[in-house]
Design a protein around this nucleic acid. Sequence first.
DNA 1: TGTTTTTAGTTTCAGTTGAAACTTCTTTCT
DNA 2: AGAAAGAAGTTTCAACTGAAACTAAAAACA
Lengths: 154, 154
Amino acid sequence: MTTENNKDREFELHSFFPYLVRDFYAEVTRAVQSAYRLDYDMSPAEWRCMAILGKDQTLAANEIVTLSSMGKVTVSRAVKRMQERDWLVASSNSDDGRSKMLSLTNAGVTTYLEIVPKVLEIENKLLANISEKQKKDFLDMIDKVKKNRNIHDL
Amino acid sequence: MTTENNKDREFELHSFFPYLVRDFYAEVTRAVQSAYRLDYDMSPAEWRCMAILGKDQTLAANEIVTLSSMGKVTVSRAVKRMQERDWLVASSNSDDGRSKMLSLTNAGVTTYLEIVPKVLEIENKLLANISEKQKKDFLDMIDKVKKNRNIHDL
DNA sequence: TGTTTTTAGTTTCAGTTGAAACTTCTTTCT
DNA sequence: AGAAAGAAGTTTCAACTGAAACTAAAAACA
């Protein structure tokens, strides 16, 4: 009674691949954020900008966008906030008047060097007792799925 | 000059496991959302509620929270919106005056049955040419990482 | 039974994010 | 050179989300 369409209601969210990926991502990201969110009052976007500038020293916002796979809006806001906190300076770009060259200040580098070991430790704990082969297979799978997404334009 | 701390700046975001997971998740979730976001004007939260009620027919909001790993706030809002669209009805729960029993309306079931094949097709495309073993290994890896997260309280 | 504690769900508030429109500067085209 | 097209960033707007406070009802307890 009342239920027509009673056939075929057999979709199982808990074995739906994208659901599992999302759930996994949520756990991993929460774990990593614990390294910097409260202690340094940073957003993931800020941490990622910092991580990229920590390694690549001086870049235009543009390049951070490319390297971080974040949107330019997100990068713009993260950069602004980091400037306000004196973790990042923008010097004018002689080649292009629209963009500034961005780099960490000494205070920014200091913070970066504090956070790096913390996030690496978390990564190590997450990956404890997982073989190199397993890790490689995992990353291979990710690549395959990404390729499939491209091939099928999803 | 100006750069002290020039040593040890060797953190590589692009091989940082949580970054790869996030990036992967972002791609997968975008692919799936394309099945319902524009065509049905639904949020992921609404789709997940629908998916759970589609299978389990009648549940309290509470149980949807557990089954969906979403927060109760998110579920509450998704349910409210689905009620407004007449995709979901709440009938009073004789056992507990605080909660209502939720189920899809016929219109809700119809929508559900339209969306299910679309998301399954997307899942199939994402997983094309990936062996069962690879999938299994991938899920095993996820479980291991989750266990590690628990063990180390991250 | 009456008080306290817990639980279900909602609302409010603040933070994050992306799309689209906009400004400024650069590049291209004629 | 001057106009048109494109690119770099920013701002505005709207949507999603979670934490905390709140309401209402149930369970625990004394």
